[in-house]
Amino acid sequence: MELNLNCLKDLLLTVEKLSTPSNPVTFIDKSYPGYQFDDAYQNIEPLSMYDWDTLLSTAELAENAGLLLKGKASPPKGYELGQLTMDGYDFIKSINNDTKFNKLKNFVAKHALQGIPTLLEIVQLYLNSASR
């Protein structure tokens, strides 16, 4: 599975902005029969630009990397995202502007990095070297 860094950034920023423990961000598979926009979180920008598989795989990668607490399925065909972890907040802080994020994306592409744990280690090394 290929990591979509734009989706990861958008997912984490959306959780940071909108999610609370009592009202987590939930995204819905728009292809599910009977899908309706009756929930404000079903049409979240910028998440609505990603397909279901990309969102779900990115959420699972973020959970496995420790950026998000474990989410859960939200019937009939949705996914409720977990809250950000401290590592998630640190990751957001490390890519907080477009210049840093674009440099990171170029660096990752150049070195063909795909896994989030590796990416997190590289982000920290990259940021430490860039601040010198």
Rank of each mutant, 00 (worst) to 15 (best):
E2P: 09
L3G: 12
L3D: 10
L5I: 00
C7G: 02
L8F: 08
L8A: 06
L8Y: 04
K9G: 07
D10P: 00
D10L: 04
D10N: 09
L12R: 07
T14V: 01
T14G: 00
E16F: 06
E16T: 00
L18T: 02
L18S: 00
T20K: 03
S22M: 08
S22L: 11
P24Q: 11
P24C: 11
T26S: 07
F27A: 02
K30H: 07
S31Y: 12
S31K: 14
Y32C: 06
P33Q: 01
P33V: 01
P33L: 03
Y35P: 09
D38I: 13
A40I: 12
Y41I: 05
I44A: 02
S48P: 03
D51W: 08
W52L: 01
L55N: 01
L61T: 07
N64E: 15
N64K: 15
A65F: 15
A65T: 09
G66H: 04
L67A: 05
L67Q: 04
L68T: 00
G71P: 02
G71N: 02
G71I: 01
A73H: 13
A73Y: 13
A73L: 11
S74A: 15
P75E: 01
K77V: 12
G78A: 05
G78H: 03
Y79C: 03
E80S: 04
E80V: 00
L81T: 05
G82W: 14
L84C: 06
Y89K: 10
Y89Q: 08
D90S: 04
F91G: 13
F91P: 05
I92S: 05
S94T: 09
S94K: 08
I95W: 01
N96W: 15
D98E: 12
K100P: 06
L104G: 07
K105Y: 01
K110M: 14
Q114F: 13
P117L: 12
T118N: 12
L119I: 08
L120G: 14
L125C: 13
L125G: 15
L125F: 12
L127K: 11
N128C: 09
N128E: 13
N128S: 11
N128P: 02
